[in-house]
């Protein structure tokens, strides 16, 4: 099986099949990346598409200095940040969109989602990239542009926090449900309220 970087270099030489192979490899993981961060499924699909288009457009400038996976998720992170900013500028539109795409999660997912949503943004991002996207510590450091030691410390603290949060605590359930039913950009604001 060819490495991602080899496929990308083949695409730079004009092989569209190589890009199709990359697309097949990363379509679902990338959609999962956006889907875990956005409650609107349609928007997650659009951003997945935008991310691949960005890779297409910037393919001639790509150099194998970092892994393709790091490059791809770095673009995805930028798109996510832009989406959060957009939703802050247009809260009404974002709220409507979120209601349309509100996931009907299973109870098992709900516990995990509310625990992750309870983390602060820095720790949440590191743990998501590690646990669900499967990035190595080095890849996370490059994608988030933070030192490797910071990745390790944040990941450890996030996991320890999750351990506490994943313990069943009925008294917190109602509050966390409120958090989960709120659009992603407003989570931080709600968490800060008493």
């Amino acid at each position: 099986m060819q490495r991602d970087e080899e496929l990308m270099m083949a695409f730079q030489k004009g092989s569209t099949e190589s890009f199709s192979e990359l697309f097949l490899r990363y379509r679902d993981p990338l959609f999962g990346f956006f889907r875990r961060r956005l409650s609107n499924r349609t928007r997650a699909e659009e951003l997945t598409q935008e991310c691949f288009l960005a890779v297409l457009q910037g393919a001639e400038r790509w150099e194998p200095r970092a892994t393709f996976r790091t490059y791809l998720y770095a673009i995805a992170l930028k798109l996510t940040a832009a989406e959060y900013r957009r939703s802050q500028r247009e809260p009404q539109k974002a709220s409507e969109a979120d209601e349309v795409g509100q996931p009907n999660a299973a109870e098992a997912d709900l516990g995990v989602r509310r625990a992750i949503a309870a983390l602060d943004a820095e720790h949440r991002e590191v743990v998501l990239l590690r646990e669900f996207e499967g990035l190595s510590y080095e890849e996370i450091a490059v994608a988030l542009r933070i030192p490797l030691n910071t990745v390790r410390s944040r990941l450890f603290r996030a996991r320890m926090s999750l351990k506490e949060l994943l313990d069943p605590q009925p008294q917190k359930l109602q509050r966390e449900k409120e958090i989960l039913s709120t659009p992603a950009p407003a989570i931080q604001q709600l968490r800060q309220e008493p």
């Binding site: 699909e45 598409q49 691949f52 995990v112 996991r159």
Partner: peptide, 20 residues
């Protein structure tokens, strides 16, 4: 890690593949 694995998302729709 074992608990986090429970959070699975549905696969992407085919429309993405078409547009790409």
């Amino acid at each position: 890690s074992g608990q986090l694995i429970q959070w699975q998302v549905e696969p992407a729709s085919l429309s993405i593949a078409t547009s790409i």
